[in-house]
């Protein structure tokens, strides 16, 4: 009897290999930026990288895990404060950023025990409340400046141009790592389970998936990512201000970016962050009108492109930048009936 060894599963297609080359070129181009453009451009692009990171994390959380949190600013804040505290202890701020990710993930675990008791809308509101609690607790501590916030020590000795470039590369590096990390996660066994949970949680449980465990993993990963983003913000601004770093606006940005770009697609947050960043740059002087425009745009996107810009594009063309699926490239060459039975008990 033939063994069905002719089955061939592919994880990527030729078009995606090309797109990887293109993405690599873009990355190289971004790395070269500080040598070719003004410092003001690169320093504003740090915000773009932060947006890519937090939106990618929210996409994992809400787009795949179904966990619509509006309290991820809690972990941005925790990450930022960790860098401040570690710097006071003599740890280099760029190293401190990674500790920020660690603290965020560590605090996210007990938080998840609390927040995961809530479902749907209650979870969303609950996470916001929890983030507020983190802010209120933080401003009680005078050693981190209370309600006034605190400046970062440890980077002041550097030449401003050098420091700006360093921050840019650091933020770029973390953003690339975050996106690649999401890609790796979604290609893994956890990603398969996560995608199933995205589509139908009850069905996923029937498939043997421990949905709560997978969601908790994603919640911790997302907290760590937001911690990194908070660290970058503090390294960039050289100070932390509790009301700004724990602001719910961060959640508004994440949601806007992911909805516009395409929820449930790895590419969505990238496109959405670009759109949002461009709007921020060109329309910021419009003040209140800018915020209204954002709102109208989000509503239009939700009404006409429920899968976002990338979703609409991807469904038309079938193109994916990051192939996470499984493609059956070749079926068994022996007819089905001649093969071994499915059950041998």
């Amino acid at each position: 009897m033939n063994t069905p060894n002719s089955l061939l599963i592919r994880r990527s297609r030729r078009s995606s290999n090309l797109s990887f080359v293109a993405l690599g070129l873009v990355a190289v181009g971004l790395v070269m930026m500080p040598y070719v453009v003004y410092q003001s451009v690169t320093s504003s692009m740090v915000m773009l990288f932060v947006l890519v990171i937090i939106a990618s994390m929210w996409n994992l959380l809400a787009g795949f895990g179904g966990l619509v949190s509006i309290g991820q600013q809690a972990y941005i804040g925790i990450g930022a404060y960790t860098v401040i505290v570690m710097a006071d202890l003599g740890v280099h701020p760029l190293i401190g950023v990674f500790f920020g990710a660690l603290t965020s993930a560590m605090l996210a675990l007990p938080t998840s025990w609390l927040a995961f008791r809530l479902r749907g809308d209650y979870f969303a509101v609950g996470t916001w409340v929890i983030a507020e609690v983190y802010r209120l607790v933080m401003i009680k501590f005078q050693f981190v400046g209370g309600a006034d916030g605190k400046s970062l020590v440890g980077l002041s000795g550097l030449d401003p141009v050098m420091r700006s470039a360093l921050t840019y590369w650091f933020a770029l590096g973390i953003a690339i790592l975050t996106v690649l990390g999401c890609f790796w996660l979604l290609r893994s066994r956890i990603g398969l389970a996560l995608t199933a949970i995205r589509d139908d949680e009850v069905s996923a449980r029937a498939g043997g998936i421990d949905a709560t465990r997978i969601k908790r993993i994603v919640y911790l990963v997302s907290a760590a990512g937001c911690g990194l983003a908070g660290g970058i913000l503090v390294v960039d601004a050289l100070r932390v201000q509790p009301d700004a770093i724990f602001s719910v606006s961060w959640s508004a940005y994440m949601i806007f970016i992911v909805i516009i770009g395409g929820i449930g697609y790895l590419e969505g947050p990238l496109i959405g962050a670009l759109v949002f960043f461009a709007m921020q740059q060109f329309l910021a002087e419009m003040g209140t009108w800018y915020l209204m425009l954002l709102g109208v745009l989000a509503i239009c996107a939700a009404a006409w492109f429920p899968k976002g810009l990338w979703g609409a594009f991807s469904q038309k063309t079938g193109f994916r930048l990051f192939p996470v699926g499984y493609h059956v490239a070749q079926r068994f060459d022996t007819p089905v009936d001649s093969r071994a039975p499915l059950f041998r008990n």
Binding site: T195, D200, G208
Partner: peptide, 23 residues
């Protein structure tokens, strides 16, 4: 399920792969 509940955004093969791995 009485009313089928496939993972709609995944391929047929991926649907089955979930059950073959996790199940």
């Amino acid at each position: 399920f009485q009313i089928p509940r496939p993972f709609e955004g995944m391929s047929v093969f991926e649907n089955l792969l979930v059950f073959a791995t996790s199940g």
